[in-house]
Amino acid sequence: MKYLLMLAVFVLSLGLPALAEEEAPKLEEYAYYGFEPEIVTNYISNRKKLGFVRISVELMVKNPDDMVQVEKHDPLLRSAIIEILGNQPEEKIKSLTGREEIRRECYDAVNKLMEAETGKALVVNLLFTRYLYD
């Protein structure tokens, strides 16, 4: 009886790791593309002094192979982000909710441009890793 119990445990232990490997979901391989140098541009200021914003932007792509396409279109994407930032009022630049709206607008613009150039939206997320203003 002891022998049968040990044999059953042994047989089951051989099959369970194989099942666990088959059921384990594959982890996504995300990659990040950072614009170098940082983006620095002016924005619409309420004061007589010119306002500026300095940001670091990272684009998150789902497939690391898509990094080539993102890098190829870096100047186009950078230009779109600069244009969006330059058209923002001071209140929006300086508020947390405004910053999130700007980030979302940049994300949408970048994906629209990538879809026009490559046929698919490659960017999963757009992150501001540094956001300074004056």
Rank of each mutant, 00 (worst) to 15 (best):
M1I: 08
M1H: 10
M1S: 11
K2S: 14
Y3H: 11
L4P: 12
L4V: 15
L7K: 10
A8S: 14
V11D: 05
L12C: 14
L14R: 03
L14G: 04
L14Y: 09
L16F: 10
L16W: 11
P17E: 11
A18I: 15
A20G: 13
E23C: 08
P25V: 01
P25T: 05
K26Q: 13
K26W: 09
E28N: 13
Y30G: 01
Y30F: 12
Y32T: 10
Y33F: 09
G34M: 08
G34V: 07
E36L: 08
E36K: 08
E38A: 08
I39T: 06
I39E: 03
I39V: 10
V40L: 07
T41L: 05
S45T: 01
N46V: 06
R47S: 11
R47H: 09
K48S: 13
F52E: 13
I55A: 02
I55P: 07
I55H: 03
S56R: 15
E58M: 15
L59E: 08
M60V: 15
V61M: 07
V61H: 02
P64N: 04
P64K: 07
D65F: 09
Q69I: 12
Q69N: 15
K72F: 10
P75S: 12
L76Y: 11
L76A: 14
L76W: 11
L76V: 15
R78P: 08
A80Q: 10
I81D: 03
I81A: 09
I81H: 02
I81V: 05
E83Y: 03
E83W: 01
I84N: 04
L85P: 00
L85K: 01
G86T: 00
G86L: 01
N87K: 12
Q88W: 09
Q88N: 06
K92E: 14
S95W: 05
L96M: 07
R99P: 04
R99K: 14
R99N: 05
E100P: 00
E101C: 02
I102T: 05
R103I: 06
Y107H: 12
D108K: 12
A109Y: 10
A109N: 07
V110H: 10
N111E: 11
N111W: 11
K112D: 09
K112T: 11
L113H: 11
L113V: 06
M114C: 00
E115S: 05
A116P: 01
E117G: 01
E117R: 07
T118N: 03
G119I: 08
K120A: 09
A121I: 03
A121L: 03
L122M: 15
N125P: 08
N125M: 06
L126V: 06
F128L: 09
F128V: 05
T129C: 02
R130D: 09
R130P: 00
R130I: 06
Y131P: 00
Y133T: 05
